[in-house]
Design a protein around this nucleic acid. Structure first.
Length: 772
DNA sequence: GCCCGGAGCGC
DNA sequence: AGGCGCTCCGGGC
C-alpha cells in the first residue's frame, strides 16, 4: 500500500524519458540495454474544480467526475486535448471575472480551480508512472558534453552572435566508455555541429550532463546552429532543442533560459551544486575551477595555463561525470517517487514535491482535494541561553528528526486528509531515509548514499513546514502548532533532566542542547549513561543522539556560538559572528578573536589587533579587505519607487547601481566601500564602487573603518575584565608575560525553566536555582 | 534614544 | 514558491 503511494500505482519499469506526441498522447521511452522502446499512452488533461456552474458556457467535450469526500475541489474535469483544457480555463476566467470584484489574470488567480500547468507532470500523476523503476543507476545512459570557444581578443567572454567567435571543440563522453573530441578532424564549425547531432542521436542517451549546460553550452550551440542553418535536432522524435517558455514569468523573477529535448533529460551540474551549497555556503560563484578545488578534483592539465583546449574539454567532462555520480543518484531516487521529470525534481521546492505525492493519490482514489486554509502565525521552536562564556568538555545532544517523529507519534495529519496520504507517505519516506543512512554507514566510500539520505531528510522535514505553508492544499495550522508545542515540551524536559543531574546547560535550540556533563560524569560512558537515562524518561519513539563533543565551547548569544573540536578546528555559528556581507577584515578579526579566545592565545590576539589597526590607519590594505558586497534583491525601478513612496530606506548598493547608469539585474552583486572622513557618515551618501579604489590615492574613510573595528572587538568585551580587555585590544606595545594572568569570565544569564515543569514523579531531583 | 524592516543566520 | 526565532544593521524620527 505504502509502496504504490510513494512510487506511484503504475508498475511500468525502466522509464527513461517522455514527451507529448499529439495533443492527447504521451510517448514514454523504456530502456532496453543499448536501445529504447517507446510506448504511447492516451492522456486526458485535467484540473480540479470547485463548482460545475463554471462549465455552463463551455461547448467542447469534457468529462466530469464527482469526487468522494467534502473537500473544496469537488470535481475533476478531463479533456480530450491539452488545447481544449486551456480553452476551458479561458472560458472560466471570463465567467469568473464577470461576477468577481477582484479580476483574475491567469488560472493561478482562480481560487475555484486547481491546475497543474505542466503536461508531463499531469501525465505522470494521471498514469502513476515514474521514472527509473527497477533500473540500475549504471543502466541509465548518461552523456557529458563541454565546449571550447574562440574569444575575440579584448573581449571577456565568447559571444555566439559575434562573427569572429565560434566553437573550436566539443568533447563528448558517456558512462559506457565512449569518448570523442569534435574539432580535431572536422574542418569547419558546421561540420563539428553536424557530427555532434549525429553522435547524440546514435548514442541515444537518456541524460545529457554539462557545466552551465543551459545558459552556456546549449545556448551557444543552438545559436551557432541557427547561424549555419542547421537544426539542432537531438530529440528522440528528431525534434529540435526547444527553449522552455515561462509565460507567467514576472519581471521581478528573471529566470535564466532553460531548454528541453524531447524524451531526454538535461542535467546542469550547476543546478546540482546550488542544491548542495546553501547550507554549506561555499561558492560565491560557480566557476569550474573554484568548484574543482573544493572537491579536490585534480585536472591533469591546469585550466589556467594549458594550451591544449581539446584535452581540457575532455577533462571538464570527467569532472562533470564525477559531480553527477556524486549528486545525481539522489535525484534518480527521487524521480522514482515523484511525478516529475528529473530536471524538475532538481528545480522544485520540496513542499511542492510532497504535495504532488498527495495529489497523485487523490486523483487515483478519486477523492476531493482541499483548498489551503488562510494563513496565520504559528509558534516556533524553543530557544534559550543559560550561560555566556567559554566552557571545557561540552557535549551536544539532539532529538533525531524531532518534528517528523512527533507527527508520526501523535498521528498529526491534516484534518482535510481523508485517506491519510500525509502520514503514510511520511512514514515511508522516513523509512527510506533510514535505509539510505544505514547503507551509507555500511559503505562510507559511497558518498552519494550520504547525499541521498540528506535529501530524504530534507523531504521528511518539509512535512512540518508544509502544514504551515500558506499555499499548501493540505495546510493545517492547528496541527503545526501542536507539533511545535510538543517539541518545546520535550526539549524542556531534557533541559530539566540535565540540570537536575547537576549538568550545566549552556544553550538550547529547538531540538538540541549544548551542556557540560555533571562533574563526576566526565568520562564517555557516563555521558552515554546520562543520554540513556534521558531517553528512558521520554516517550519511547523519541530518540536522542550524541551530536558532538567539543574541547571548548564559546557561548555568545542565542543561536550564536563557536566550538573548538578535538581535531583542533574551530567552527563558528550565528549571524552575529559570521555573516556573508561583513567586510573581510571584520570576518578575519572575529575569526581570530574566537580562535584565540578558545585557545587562550591572548598575546597573539593582541599582536594581531595591533597590526590590523596599523594597517587601517596607514592604508596598508587592499580593497578586498574592506569592501562590502551586497546582492540586489529588487529591480532598480522598484527600489526607486519604494524610496519615492517612503516605503524603504536608501541603501548604498542600490544608490551606486542607479548612479552608474548601467543595466543591473536582480541577483547582481555590488561591491563598494565607504568614503569621507567622519565616522558617522551615511554610507549611501559616501560610497564608491570597489573598482574605483586606487591604492595610490586611497580615499576610504579611516574613521569609519576604525569605528567598525571597535564594534567588532566590542563583541568580545563580555569575556574579559575591563583591564584585560583593554590590554588585548590596545595599540601600544604590551609585555608578553602580562597576558599569562588573563582569565576568561563566564556569566549566568536567562531565567530558570525548571519552575515551569511539574515533575511530581521525581521529587528527589535537585534543582538549580537562579542567582537573581 | 527608540522603533522599524530587511538581511542573514540557526534550527 | 515550507516554518519561526534571534541578532545586527542602517535609516528615520
Amino acid at each position: 500500500m505504502q509502496e504504490t503511494l510513494v512510487y506511484g500505482h503504475n508498475p511500468q519499469e525502466k522509464v527513461v524519458g517522455l514527451h507529448p506526441t499529439e495533443d492527447n498522447k504521451m510517448r514514454i521511452y523504456v530502456r532496453k540495454e543499448n536501445s529504447t522502446e517507446n510506448i504511447d499512452y492516451n492522456f486526458y488533461p485535467f484540473f480540479f474544480l470547485h463548482d460545475l456552474q463554471y462549465l455552463e458556457n463551455f461547448k467542447r467535450r469534457y468529462y466530469k467526475r464527482k469526487l468522494e469526500g467534502n473537500n473544496f475541489f469537488q470535481y475533476i474535469i478531463a479533456f480530450d486535448k491539452w488545447s481544449d483544457m486551456w480553452d476551458c480555463i479561458h472560458n472560466i476566467l471570463e465567467m469568473y471575472n464577470k461576477s468577481s470584484l477582484k479580476k483574475a489574470l491567469t488560472y493561478e488567480d482562480l481560487p475555484i480551480i486547481y491546475l497543474i500547468p505542466d503536461r508531463q507532470t499531469q501525465f505522470l500523476i494521471q498514469s502513476g508512472i515514474t521514472h527509473f523503476k527497477n533500473i540500475g543507476h549504471d543502466e541509465i545512459h548518461r552523456l557529458q558534453i563541454s565546449i571550447d570557444k574562440v574569444i575575440t581578443p579584448g573581449k571577456k567572454t565568447s559571444n555566439p552572435r559575434r562573427e569572429s567567435d565560434r566553437i573550436t571543440y566539443i568533447a563528448l563522453t558517456d558512462n559506457r566508455g565512449f569518448e570523442a573530441i569534435l574539432g580535431k578532424t572536422e574542418k569547419s564549425e558546421k561540420a563539428i555541429l553536424q557530427k555532434l547531432i549525429n553522435i547524440i542521436n546514435k548514442l541515444n542517451p537518456d541524460i545529457i550532463e554539462g557545466f552551465e549546460l543551459h545558459n552556456d553550452i546549449i545556448y551557444y550551440i543552438l545559436t551557432r546552429c541557427e547561424l549555419h542553418n542547421i537544426n539542432f535536432a537531438i530529440g528522440r522524435d528528431n525534434s529540435n532543442v526547444k527553449l522552455i517558455e515561462h509565460p507567467l514569468q514576472s519581471r521581478e523573477s528573471l529566470q535564466k533560459a532553460k531548454y528541453s529535448v524531447a524524451g531526454r533529460n538535461l542535467i546542469d551540474v550547476v543546478d546540482l551544486l546550488q542544491d548542495y551549497d546553501p547550507n554549506r555556503r561555499i561558492f560565491y560563484n560557480y566557476d569550474i575551477k573554484t568548484v574543482a578545488e573544493h572537491f579536490k578534483f585534480k585536472f591533469q592539465n591546469n585550466p589556467e595555463t594549458t594550451s591544449d583546449a581539446a584535452t581540457l574539454c575532455i577533462e571538464k567532462n570527467y569532472f562533470v561525470k564525477y559531480l553527477c555520480e556524486l549528486f545525481l543518484p539522489s535525484f534518480i531516487e527521487q524521480a522514482r517517487i515523484f511525478p516529475l521529470n528529473p530536471g524538475k525534481i532538481i528545480e522544485f521546492p520540496s513542499s511542492h514535491k510532497i504535495e504532488l505525492l498527495f495529489v497523485r493519490e487523490y486523483v487515483h482514489k478519486k477523492y476531493s482535494l482541499p483548498a489551503p486554509q488562510s494563513s496565520r502565525q504559528i509558534s516556533g521552536g524553543y530557544t534559550d541561553l543559560f550561560y555566556i562564556g567559554v566552557f571545557d568538555n561540552v557535549y551536544y545532544i539532539d532529538i533525531e528528526s524531532m518534528y517528523p517523529t512527533l507527527i508520526l507519534m501523535y498521528n498529526l495529519n491534516p484534518s482535510t486528509d481523508y485517506i491519510n496520504v500525509f502520514i503514510d507517505s511520511l512514514k515511508e519516506l522516513a523509512r527510506l531515509r533510514i535505509h539510505y543512512k544505514n547503507e551509507f554507514l555500511k559503505n562510507k566510500d559511497k558518498k552519494y548514499l550520504f547525499y541521498i539520505q540528506e535529501d530524504f531528510k530534507i523531504l521528511i522535514n518539509t512535512y512540518f513546514g508544509y502544514l504551515a505553508y500558506h499555499k499548501g492544499l493540505f495546510n493545517d495550522y492547528d496541527k503545526a502548532n501542536k507539533i511545535t508545542e510538543l517539541g518545546q515540551e520535550i526539549l524542556k524536559k531534557i533541559i530539566y533532566h540535565i540540570q537536575s543531574q547537576n549538568g550545566t546547560v549552556i544553550e538550547v535550540d529547538t531540538d538540541g542542547v549544548y551542556f557540560v556533563p555533571p562533574y563526576k560524569m566526565e568520562s564517555g560512558e557516563a555521558v552515554e549513561k546520562l543520554i540513556k537515562e534521558i531517553t528512558n524518561y521520554l516517550p519511547e519513539e523519541i530518540n536522542i543522539i550524541l551530536g558532538g563533543k567539543y574541547k571548548r565551547f564559546l557561548s555568545y548569544k542565542k543561536k550564536n556560538y563557536a566550538v573548538l573540536k578535538y581535531d583542533d578546528s574551530v567552527q563558528i555559528k550565528g549571524s552575529a559572528l559570521i555573516s556573508k556581507n561583513l567586510e573581510k577584515f571584520g570576518k578575519v578579526l572575529i575569526q581570530n578573536c574566537i580562535s584565540c579566545i578558545l585557545r587562550e592565545e591572548f598575546y597573539e590576539l593582541h599582536i594581531f589587533y595591533k597590526n590590523l589597526y596599523d594597517k587601517i590607519v596607514n592604508h596598508k590594505w587592499n580593497i578586498q579587505d574592506f569592501m562590502r558586497v551586497e546582492t540586489l534583491k529588487d529591480p532598480l525601478y522598484k527600489y526607486s519607487n519604494d524610496i519615492q513612496r517612503d516605503q524603504r530606506n536608501r541603501n548604498a548598493a542600490y544608490e551606486l547601481a542607479i548612479r552608474s547608469g548601467l543595466d543591473w539585474n536582480v541577483g547582481d552583486r555590488v561591491a563598494y566601500y565607504v568614503t569621507g572622513s567622519d565616522a558617522n557618515v551615511k554610507a549611501y551618501e559616501n560610497c564608491k564602487f570597489a573598482e574605483e579604489w586606487d591604492p595610490n590615492f586611497p580615499d576610504e574613510n579611516i574613521a569609519y573603518y576604525l569605528k567598525r573595528l571597535e564594534e567588532y572587538t566590542r563583541k568580545f568585551e563580555i569575556y574579559f575584565s575591563k583591564e584585560d580587555f583593554s590590554k588585548i585590544f590596545s595599540t601600544s606595545e604590551q609585555k608578553k608575560e602580562s597576558f599569562k594572568t588573563i582569565r576568561l569570565l563566564t556569566k549566568k544569564v536567562g531565567k530558570e525553566i525548571i519552575s515551569e515543569i511539574e515533575e511530581k514523579d521525581e521529587p528527589e531531583y535537585k534543582i538549580w536555582l537562579s542567582e537573581e
